[in-house]
């Protein structure tokens, strides 16, 4: 076969493979939305799930998901950002820094079910909380921590040096420089990263089954110690328990809702990044 023919065939094959990837994505999104959108009635979104008969909704799961995701981000972001600042601004090359980096990478590689086991021992059993939103959020925060550390460090490193120098030259301390010159310049990238982490938290289930549990309090409550089944966990649970006659319908609706939420988050990331970039460009 001539080199040119091979070239054509290979390029065609590679392009076709890329097309196949798009098709797979299209199929997943399409089938979930086609099956699930009809389920997403106002009633479905606003009524509570039922353990006995058909007709349950997902209002509690939506609430629990928001609650847990927000709480976990509130825990993960300050710590992750702090560690990112440390790695970008203070860490000197050496044993300690490599240890911290190794720890971050290792933490990022821990399977989520192992986080689930960890959360179960620490929060459910040792701390005696039982299944709780707090335990779920804390474990989820741990899962997202390495991502936030990495995003923060990269964002801080991307800040041009002259910005820093300008501040230091005014006699500002290093910490003042970080808070007043460096961190404000990272807002765009940071927001993108945090949204990414939130999106991941939104769909996480293996961690939460064992920590936040598979049930919800009967009443709408902000109690962090109450258990809190999220949407992703609900999708799995109705299906695994298979005790409801309309389990498949509920799963379809929940899956479609999750996909819509994911699409919203993705669009949000793009919008946020663009907007904040523009704002910063205007300032600079």
């Amino acid at each position: 076969m001539s080199a040119r023919r091979t070239d054509q065939i290979a390029r065609w094959t590679v392009t076709a493979a890329a097309g196949l990837i798009l098709l797979v994505l299209g199929y997943i999104l399409g089938s979930v939305l086609i099956n699930g959108l009809p389920v997403l009635s106002w009633h479905f979104l606003t009524s509570r799930s039922s353990n006995l008969g058909p007709g349950g909704g997902i209002s509690l799961q939506i609430f629990n998901t928001l609650y847990i995701v927000i709480m976990s981000m509130l825990m993960a972001v300050p710590v992750g950002l702090g560690a990112g600042v440390y790695l970008a601004e203070y860490a000197l090359p050496g044993r300690l820094t490599s240890l911290i980096r190794l720890a971050t990478e290792s933490l990022a590689s821990v399977p989520s079910i192992v986080f689930g086991l960890f959360g179960m021992v620490v929060f459910v059993n040792a701390a005696g909380l039982g299944f709780s939103r707090l335990g779920g959020a804390a474990t989820l925060a741990l899962l997202n921590l390495p991502l936030i550390v990495r995003v923060s460090e990269e964002a801080i490193r991307a800040v041009p040096a002259d910005l820093r120098h300008a501040s230091l030259a005014l006699g500002a301390t290093k910490e003042q420089t970080i808070f007043s010159a460096v961190l404000p310049a990272t807002v765009g990238r940071l927001a993108t990263g945090v949204t990414l982490a939130a999106g991941r938290a939104l769909g996480e289930s293996a961690v939460l089954i064992a920590t936040a549990g598979m049930s919800s309090p009967r009443y709408l409550t902000l109690d962090p110690l109450a258990s809190g089944e999220t949407l992703a966990v609900h999708l799995w649970a109705v299906n695994a328990e298979n005790s409801l006659s309309d389990a498949a319908r509920i799963a379809d609706g929940t899956a479609a809702f999750l996909i819509l939420a994911m699409l919203a988050v993705s669009l949000g990331i793009g919008w946020l990044a663009r907007r904040l970039d523009r704002r910063l460009a205007g300032q600079g």
Binding site: V32, G203, A251
Partner: peptide, 15 residues
């Protein structure tokens, strides 16, 4: 590809 990464694993499982 980013969307593919964002799909929750339970949804993959469900499909």
């Amino acid at each position: 590809i980013q969307l593919l990464a964002g799909i929750p694993s339970v949804v993959y499982g469900w499909v």
